[in-house]
Design a protein around this nucleic acid. Structure first.
Lengths: 210, 210
DNA sequence: AGTTTGTTCAAACAGTTGTTTGAATTTTTA
DNA sequence: TAAAAATTCAAACAACTGTTTGAACAAACT
């Protein structure tokens, strides 16, 4: 009757599902694995969530909360260059810095959805990507000026996102290619300084001759 | 003695496997689907290749041939900036231009392996990525000068790769975010010009203060 | 011819998947 | 306390997976 009969197993299932989905991906994840880690019965997923798909949706709702409004770099006192620095610093540290928390798992799931999009990618884009790209777009409009062609603005915005997301995707390749290369994690500041420099240089280059 | 009018079932299986693996990924691909498209019996994969895994290896050998040596931009008469332009132009058009051929399927499989690495990623990196990154590294060494720190060179190399690979990964997001944006395919030259400008600007920016 | 070798095929096998069942158990309600 | 509702659980289900089997067929060689 009450809506909080046994929160324990349901929460345990959700936590285990976040782990497994981030680690294996939706297809490779099995409900038996999830229930095993949650110390619950195999039928628990269907009882509490209604099925594997619904559990995945619940996971997405959990790790992409609605009320999250970053807009960190909106301080009007800062120059757009400084705001870009703050923007890239915050985004980078969120992706790479915190190792075992929920934040990195969220980006792992995001990466999986990009490589093999499902219907749920719409949800993730609306919750996670849309507000961040809007903010970047504002910063870039100030840097490039109001007369910049829309294509240049769109390309540049994608370029800067690509610089940040790069390691998320190419980490396994870098491990195989140049294992001696220092990892981003632990050198976040160096990495951020580099991509800020690279971005500002690239932006002024595409601004010059338009 | 060769080229019988009847289609070789082994070749048909290989062709169908390339399609299915590129479209669904290794896990989601089924041998029944592959054999169905090849109009072959379910047991044909095991008879001709020995199993699904061995078929995947055969597909990788097929779409990542050994004798492929790009080194297009090695002309010593060109400036490193021009060589970078040629390098990015060739790489971009190979990834995005030819729509239905084998080349794009190769990059689709590459993307899948990056998002969920398997043992075969070593093979792909050695065959596909290694020679191209070596070439880029040479170009960047000339542009940045011999005294550039190794970390800056490594970061910059990754950055430029990220600019090219960007759309491969974010295409499904862009479709959901800004559908009005002109696609890269069809505007390859504009895209290449943009990332060349952006790259050169970024490179001189990271070169300045080191 | 006959024999051998290579290839196809329908059927079945063994394993895993998500899901359902129905009875046992716990918790809540009256 | 007793009835009722909510939750757990072992077992089974149906569908799908890659793989194997053994007979049928085809081609090549002696």
């Amino acid at each position: 009757m009450n809506e909080t009969p046994d929160v324990n197993t349901k929460d345990a299932l959700l936590a285990a599902a976040i782990e497994v989905f981030a680690d294996k991906g939706f297809d490779a994840a099995t409900v038996r694995d999830i229930c095993g880690r949650a110390k619950a019965n195999v039928a628990a997923v269907n009882y509490h969530f209604g099925g594997k798909d619904a559990l995945y949706v619940a996971v997405l709702e959990e790790i992409f909360p609605k009320d999250e409004h970053p807009q960190i770099a909106k301080d009007p006192d800062l120059s757009p260059q400084e705001r870009l620095h703050n923007y890239l610093s915050d985004l980078t540290s969120e992706i790479y810095e915190r190792g075992n928390g929920m934040v990195t798992q969220r980006w792992a799931i995001f990466l999986r959805e990009m490589a093999k999009p499902s219907q749920n990618l719409d949800f993730i884009v609306k919750r996670q990507v849309q507000p961040r790209t809007d903010e970047l777009r504002n910063i870039l409009t100030e840097i490039l000026g109001p007369d910049v062609p829309g294509a240049v603005l769109a390309f540049s915005s994608s370029n800067i996102w690509a610089l940040v997301l790069d390691h998320l995707l190419t980490q396994p390749i870098i491990d195989r290619l140049t294992p001696q290369r220092p990892s981003v994690r632990g050198n976040i500041d160096d990495f951020v300084d580099h991509i800020v420099k690279f971005s500002l240089g690239g932006l002024s280059a595409v601004k010059e001759n338009t």
